[in-house]
Design a protein around this nucleic acid. Structure first.
Lengths: 233, 233
DNA sequence: CAGTGGTCTAGACCACAAG
DNA sequence: TTGTGGTCTAGACCACTGG
């Protein structure tokens, strides 16, 4: 309730969540329409809409025109993950950030890369391998392919000081991407670069980004053991 | 643009995104205020607000009262993960879901469990271990502690047919939780239960849920190798 | 067809924070 | 102090879809 005495959408949201938690509105049940709730809570329908929409976006309600609003039977909770650039991620944990380029060069793109970047057989792409460190210790290994057709001035940037991760964010805004997270065993090369024992389990982020149907880059980020990705729901 | 000829917030959002992608509004730049944009695009300020808010929620804009709206310098992209119940997760991949209880019993809670569930030294909690299978193959191992004080009728449920995962969703609605994802090496016991080689890397989800400051359960989900968590941004 | 949510508008007041 | 975003309202029209 605001100072004004009016019902704010967040107040309303809290009341709605309470009704869900207490099972006042049980799973699968049809709840009253927006107009009715507006009357009950003494506010405008737009306010009810905003509150219900926010709860629905969290996965707790199913809303459909004409059918009305139902309590989700199997709530598919949504967790939001923050995907910062690596330097920020390290600095926010109060570590000293370090970066070193391990490899940079044009190479013939392997099949796995070609399919992701939509390149033709025999096409070449820019390969960048780099290590990000936190307080001097290896933090994450970045193995990346960049589509040379998607970016201008690619040959002018040597990635010696600035990581491809960060450069691409500045240089090439992207419209979309897909990310997958998995657990893998390190390869021998990765293990030596991350200075960890062979056979370690590592957290891997596989990310592809594009801009308007145009594939830009495909990156594989291999985190040193102990890394945890965390979020609240 | 709607049939009506009015500018919808999604149309406006697209135009805003375009200005960001083309660097018409560059990183760090202050963009015009809502009132001005409303005039420019010929719509109400509320519509501009809705569009700008959605873009800001995606992490591409920073909005502050009085300071105005700026293009984010280091866009912290937000990825949303769906957290379904395990049965649904398997069924949505068109696999046959299977479940078997491995252990159920009251045990003295170890320190790691006590701290998470806010239990006193010497307290007991319900331990549940179960295996979820997809097409008969082990999919994920569920190792869970349940706070007996947080749930009624806990002793009446034997978890023989229904998984604790699913039962808790129905029985105990929760108000919040935290989740972390990591990569680990399987323990010997886990390996035999998941029928995988020792030394395998596994994707682990560590989840704690509570209801109004009251800890309900702490679950560790260990996925069989090959599991990938995927999302679009 | 008709009911429900989705959205737009125009105006208003307010909270916050930069200067 | 004052500008900017945050939100509420009352009314309206529309899109979708269940029956």
């Amino acid at each position: 309730m605001s100072a004004n005495g009016t019902v704010g959408w967040q107040d309303l949201q809290a009341k709605i969540l309470e009704r869900l938690h207490t099972r006042y509105w049980g799973p699968g049940e049809l709840i009253p329409g927006e107009a009715e709730l507006a009357k009950e809570f003494g506010c405008a329908r737009a306010t009810v809409n905003r509150a219900l929409r926010s709860v629905a976006e969290a996965g707790l309600l199913d809303r459909r025109r004409k059918a009305g609003t139902r309590v989700a039977v199997h709530p598919v909770r949504k967790a939001t993950l923050d995907i910062p650039i690596i330097r920020k991620e390290i600095e926010e944990r109060s570590f000293d950030y370090g970066y070193s380029l391990l490899f940079r060069g044009i190479k013939k793109a392997p099949a796995s890369c070609r399919s992701r970047l939509e390149l033709e057989v025999g096409a070449t792409a820019l390969r960048v391998e780099a290590l990000h460190t936190a307080n001097g210790a290896p933090y994450v290994l970045e193995e990346r392919w960049i589509n040379p057709k998607a970016i201008d001035d690619l040959d002018k940037e040597d990635f010696m000081q600035l990581s491809a991760n960060e450069w691409l964010v500045m240089k090439a805004s992207f419209s979309g991407g897909d990310i997958s997270f998995s657990a893998e065993l390190v390869t021998k090369t990765q293990a030596s670069r991350l200075r960890i024992p062979e056979g370690s389990a590592v957290f891997v982020v596989d990310r592809k980004t594009w801009n308007k149907d145009h594939a830009i880059t495909w990156a594989k980020l291999t985190y040193a053991p102990g890394y945890r990705m965390h979020t609240l729901i």
